[in-house]
């Protein structure tokens, strides 16, 4: 780990100022469960680390309006213990997928959203787009865990967030603070598929921080998350599906289906949503929705199985929500 200077401001404005481009290469430290590994691997080499631990305004989970406000520094453990979060089934199911008590205690909700891809080429120093001598490594390489959608290049990694699919399916937004003040955007808009080496996988400026996540009321929605992972616990998901369904007369009247770990961004599938509308919510409509979601999948040389896993994730999530 390269040495760095450290500051732990007490409010978001000073944090944004501390992240000023004038300060050199900076990194934001929240729970640290991802950042420290990146620093040790020299994947990130900031000269300044700005810790959010002293900003009390970023903590806590509470009801707000009809919805839920999750402070960016609220931990996964906080989320799982929150009474206010109890109505958000799919979010809690996703949070339970973060299994290690140590990660739950340290890792934050915003940190989960903004953790960097687990792509092993990226983590081993070949860059976000995984290249060696200008050649893309993933398409002909070890791509069993890589993207099956949104993978036309140059990005092949999968978004690593456990919570983003659920939050997007719940219509959540994030508040982002920068030196010029706050802005709000949908969780989905946090992410992008980078088109060049100059881009990251998220849309934040280097001196912006997420301050809170706002989830609208889930009243009237049936929600569920199903995560496929190989080991019973402590494993990165192979595919995840979060669904939110609004039912009328036993039929789906509105649906949101978001897949995780299948594309460089959390993948909202309008095809799956269309397939569900007007149907009963059960495993057989779920299979159709899963197939619709995967119709456009373009698996790489080693990851055809992920098409099946994502299909099953949708099927089971719909079955759970139904």
């Amino acid at each position: 780990m390269q040495n760095f200077e450290y500051i732990a401001p007490i409010n978001t404005l000073s944090a944004a100022q501390a992240l000023s481009p004038d300060a050199g290469v900076t990194a934001v430290l929240a729970g640290g469960t991802d950042l420290l590994s990146l620093l040790k691997q020299h994947v990130e080499t900031p000269t300044r680390v700005v810790s959010l631990r002293n900003i009390s305004a970023l903590r806590g989970i509470s009801k707000r309006g009809g919805g839920l406000r999750i402070g960016a520094m609220a931990t996964v453990e906080d989320l799982l213990g929150s009474k206010a979060a109890a109505p958000y089934e799919s979010l809690l199911q996703a949070a339970r997928g973060i299994t290690a008590p140590q990660v739950r205690a340290m890792g934050t909700v915003a940190g989960d959203l903004l953790q960097r891809p687990r792509c092993w080429y990226f983590r081993n120093g070949y860059g976000l787009l995984a290249k060696s001598e200008g050649k893309a490594l993933v398409p002909s390489g070890e791509n069993r865990y890589h993207a099956i959608l949104g993978n036309k290049g140059p990005a092949y990694f999968v978004n690593a967030s456990s919570l983003a699919p659920a939050l997007i399916s719940l219509g959540a937004t994030v508040s982002v603070a920068g030196p010029e003040g706050e802005r709000e955007m949908s969780v989905a808009d946090l992410y992008r598929i980078p088109s060049s080496d100059a881009e990251r996988e998220n849309t934040l400026a280097p001196n912006e921080i997420v301050t809170e996540i706002n989830v609208p009321s889930a009243s009237g929605w049936s929600t569920a998350t199903y995560e496929v992972r190989q080991r019973q616990l402590l494993d990165w998901p192979l595919a995840t599906a979060s669904v939110a369904l609004r039912m009328r007369g036993g039929k789906v009247s509105d649906a949101r289906v978001v897949l995780g770990h299948v594309a460089p961004i959390p993948w909202r599938s309008s095809e799956a949503e269309t397939a569900l509308k007007g149907k009963a919510a059960n495993e057989s409509s779920g299979v159709e929705a899963g197939k619709a979601a995967m119709a456009a999948a373009t698996p790489l040389s080693q990851n055809k199985a992920k098409v099946q896993l994502a299909t099953v994730a949708v099927k089971r999530a719909v079955g759970m929500a139904g």
Binding site: Y126, G141, E142
Partner: peptide, 17 residues
């Protein structure tokens, strides 16, 4: 192992499961 780079891709305890 990755043939192009010749490196072990999972010398860790996350993906060396």
């Amino acid at each position: 192992y990755d043939q192009t780079t010749g490196t072990m891709l999972n010398p860790d305890m996350e993906f060396y499961k």
